[in-house]
Design a protein around this nucleic acid. Sequence first.
DNA 1: GAATAACTTAACCATAAAGTTAAAAAATAC
DNA 2: GTATTTTTTAACTTTATGGTTAAGTTATTC
Lengths: 214, 214
Amino acid sequence: MAKPKARNPEEVKRNILEIASEEFAENGFAGARVNVIAERTETSKRMIYYYFDDKLGLYREVLVLAYRQMREQEAAYNDAPKSATEALCNFVRQTFMDRIRHEGFMRLVAIENIHRAENLDALGARFSDVNKSAVETIAKLYREGVASGEFRAGCDATELHWFISALATFNVTNRHTFSAAFGSAVYSEKGQENLCQMAVDAVLHLARTGRDHQ
Amino acid sequence: MAKPKARNPEEVKRNILEIASEEFAENGFAGARVNVIAERTETSKRMIYYYFDDKLGLYREVLVLAYRQMREQEAAYNDAPKSATEALCNFVRQTFMDRIRHEGFMRLVAIENIHRAENLDALGARFSDVNKSAVETIAKLYREGVASGEFRAGCDATELHWFISALATFNVTNRHTFSAAFGSAVYSEKGQENLCQMAVDAVLHLARTGRDHQ
DNA sequence: GAATAACTTAACCATAAAGTTAAAAAATAC
DNA sequence: GTATTTTTTAACTTTATGGTTAAGTTATTC
């Protein structure tokens, strides 16, 4: 009577990781409960230990998957802009919106920073390889702008990436304390447009003036 | 033989809060252990419950104290700069360095954001009152620059504060994942100088161009 | 100087947490 | 059709956790 229920280990793992990702993002590593994760999956607690050994092993696989999904998604940008200026402008906007869309990922990153990234470090090359594309995108973009005369040389691509990332990330991860302290006007529709435009203006300015910080 | 050990409830409370602040900043709310906090204080676990009721009560008092100390310290800036430009430049640098110096506070803020600031919200006016000065400082500074013709009108002071805060905060709170992903060059002495200078340049640019984002 | 309130100590408790055991069943591979 | 891998179930163990009890001590108040 009960359906045969075909086996699918990959799907079981995927399902566990999906739920675990939500629970860790919501409650942090120490705050998350293995029992709760188990209850929410379509399988049992035993299977979590079967596939991931322990809570930490599960958490680390969640991190790997989250970063991989994020970078894959970022790599799918590539519009066909008319100029380097336009491309950079789009890139900043994209990043800003992207961070908003992936709040769960942002929370995992914030949590891992509280752990001083010791779990990402433990992953070694399995992690750092994934990120190479992120800086390369903006490096290429900036080079093209310098070549066309739109930007001035001297900026460091990683520093530009840092700058864009800082604004887009803070906007999501510090939203709650900022609102509690200073009101939520900056998180109104108009407020968010303003902040995004400020980010675009500032980044264009930095790219155009080049290395004024020698 | 044992010294009389004079009573000093305020000192006992202060001591508990100091240790608790370190433990919560290090491990988060769920990760922190009341037993560990108790062991590290000069008093006993019972006194924590005597003064703060429970773990959450202790955590909330830690937040109150941390924000108060931070704002008091910020309010003690007031140098005597020659121009509004110089004043804004100094303010950005100060903020940038300040966040670096108060890593523990930054960690508490990050942790409270993971909790969606529900504990700050629960404090109500006891919290929001403390922050009024922070935006007022930059608002005044910007007004003076507009009056002197150095800046153009139209910027929102809270948005400027958000902008400066974003860069200075991300630099500290996302240090570990950023380094793990993109290398630690931006956290070398030279790298940090560059980032700080980028922040100054960008903020000056925004203040000078005023409301290009209507 | 007795009463009272503030404070201290350490043993104790109930619960909840991560993780395990063990036995069996079902699907798949060979 | 035998061996292997995957999956299920549920009870169990160990340890650590937040929180409490209860008795005692010290300063302060009257």
